[in-house]
Design a protein around this nucleic acid. Structure first.
Lengths: 340, 340
DNA sequence: CTTCCTTTGCAAAACGTTTTGGTTCGGTGT
DNA sequence: ACACCGAACCAAAACGTTTTGCAAAGGAAG
């Protein structure tokens, strides 16, 4: 292997000093080098295959060009992948690269991982959760520009982004209303998390906005998995004046609703329309008919989060913001007009 | 913010020179410093919250302690998350950290991303694919210790790890045979990829090993998605001497088989047993009954891959190896004895 | 008391950049 | 022709470590 080509090799090959090379390559300090020389240096550098050593430049100007991404879990759903990709794409566009670290539930481990990130002099970190939830920022992060991803905290000085749960629910329910439904059931979650409360609120908002009277017997809560969804849907769809449409807390409970409908001999969407939330393509595309659902914008949130940290890094002092990102409706085949 | 504490602050606080501090902390060069002094220095360092600057040490000893992970896709399945987590866990245990980068299908982008990794002086990279496939190693990676993850290449000098497709299929089919099935159908994929060929071979191996005559009408190929699985299963299960068990190329086609069975009024597992491959928990846990399937060991492969690069880095010259990792059976509820 | 180790600690160089403060050089105004 | 100015370039210091080559101190052997 040939010895690595550094800035001095470039300088020698171009017949100038290393200073000139540096100036030619980072044209920040404008016009300390003649345009013609600059071009020459750049050509030489390219021909030699020169690639700057970021350890060195990072050391010199206290900027590693590295972002840390610490998340809790990463394996169960494709959500984490989407967040990471969004973060990575945004980082790449601005010349940064991201170090991924995840800690399971072990806060001791998390602390040591953050320490490692600090040792690598990360310029900032995005602190992510896989499910929208409230968190407490680990003290180890104080002093490093940080933004929250899919999480919120009490401290109003830290920026964060989460999906807009109530707007997501409104979008889902309005798709049903638009199709003509008025007897709409909801299968909600039990856990005390923002999604549970927000989606319920959105459900009521949408009904109220369209002047639809809500039948309390059409609201059911259960465990947020497929089994719970199946049982809840069985109950709802066996009622005498059963709902003609079901708004499900998640795609998984929607899958349970499909199973219930099938078991009862009900056709989707002719006998009952169904919408979910999550847009888990693995499920939504595999169901028959395809599940109309509202997408949680993990990719977009990932992008936003790193752009926000980078803004904070590049010119600090901007006021923090807590944003809620809108969630788009993804239409497949599970919503149709009610059979009259 | 207090000024960062460096090795010189520690030295001053401990009343020794920076050399001594360095020796005390990295006890590699043994006994150049008295044990008592070493302990003292360490205490002081901890109290000051000293964390070494890895940019500086990396620059000094040409070792960044960073690994690059370049993958093609990352969002569609939770597989990527599992691989990343495996890689990250193994790296962490050995004091490394991983930079994740992914390129979609854009090889131009991939090249630039690899360049970025090189600028950050990554000590090695694992080059990953989301689905087991043959690849060509990008030339930009020559000169950097590299191992392939879920991919193979023609070059025998590069280490790689992939799932053992034929063994996986054998495991799946033998679970059916063990339950008493002899009329076993297979729904295979069409694509010309290792999984297609390997799983078919494993299917035949298992039958042959148990002296079971294979009925060619029980083998069907189709598109590897749920829709294809449903149609294929409808065909298989409508035959007069229909198979009593179905081995499905993937969990998604297994889901299609569930839909077909339900449509035909067949009970799982009483009328027909089903096994898949993938262990996509999102699907396997959500089906009713739960899908018995063979897990693709993405987490384990991720671990293995980084351990292998790190071995190559820490003492080079070991002979490369191409390994196929075994895939465990995950039993849920979709396999039972055939109804006699 | 001298000599010669051993043990312990220090000063300085090096890693590859960026940037500050000069220096050289050619040209312009008087 | 003289002083002066700006353009173009360069030498050197600095970032925070690790490590080499020495020096000092102390002890043992002669």
């Amino acid at each position: 292997m040939t010895t690595r080509v550094g800035i001095r090799e470039v300088a020698k090959a171009a017949g100038v000093s290393v200073t000139t090379v540096s100036h030619a390559l980072n044209d920040a300090t404008s016009s300390r080098v003649k345009a013609e020389t600059q071009q020459h240096v750049r050509d030489v550098a390219r021909n030699l295959g020169y690639a700057p050593n970021r350890l060195a430049s990072g050391l010199r100007n206290q900027r590693s060009q590295i972002l840390g991404l610490v998340s809790d879990e990463i394996t169960t759903t494709p959500f984490a992948g989407a967040m990471i990709r969004g973060a990575q794409d945004a980082a790449y566009e601005r010349g940064y690269v991201v170090m991924v670290v995840n800690s399971g539930l072990d806060s001791e481990l998390e602390h040591r991982e953050i320490t490692m990130l600090q040792q690598h002099q990360v310029d900032g970190v995005v602190y992510a959760r896989l499910y929208h939830q409230g968190v407490e920022l680990p003290p180890a992060l104080s002093g490093i520009p940080t933004v929250l991803l899919d999480a919120v905290t009490g401290d109003p000085s830290v920026s964060s982004i989460v999906p807009d749960e109530v707007e997501a629910a409104e979008t889902a329910v309005e798709a049903l209303i638009r199709a003509g439904h008025t007897r709409i059931g909801m299968i909600n979650n039990v856990d005390d998390i923002p999604a549970t409360h927000g989606r319920l609120e959105g459900f009521h908002n949408a009904l109220r906005r369209h002047g639809i009277q809500h039948d309390p017997r059409h609201l059911v809560i259960g465990v947020p998995e497929t089994t719970g969804g199946r049982e809840a849907a069985l109950g709802l769809l066996s009622q005498p004046d059963r709902p003609t449409a079901l708004f499900c807390f998640s795609d998984r409970v929607a899958m349970g609703a499909y199973q219930a409908a099938t078991a009862l001999g009900l056709n989707i969407p002719d006998d009952v329309s169904i919408v979910g939330i999550d847009n888990l393509e693995l499920i939504a595309d595999s169901l028959w008919p395809g599940l109309t659902t509202v997408a949680l914008p993990h990719y977009g949130m990932g992008r936003w989060a790193v752009n926000r940290v980078l803004d904070d890094i590049e010119n600090p002092g901007a006021p923090p913001e807590q944003v809620r990102l809108a969630c788009p409706l993804i239409e497949r085949g599970s919503v149709g007009p009610p059979r009259t």
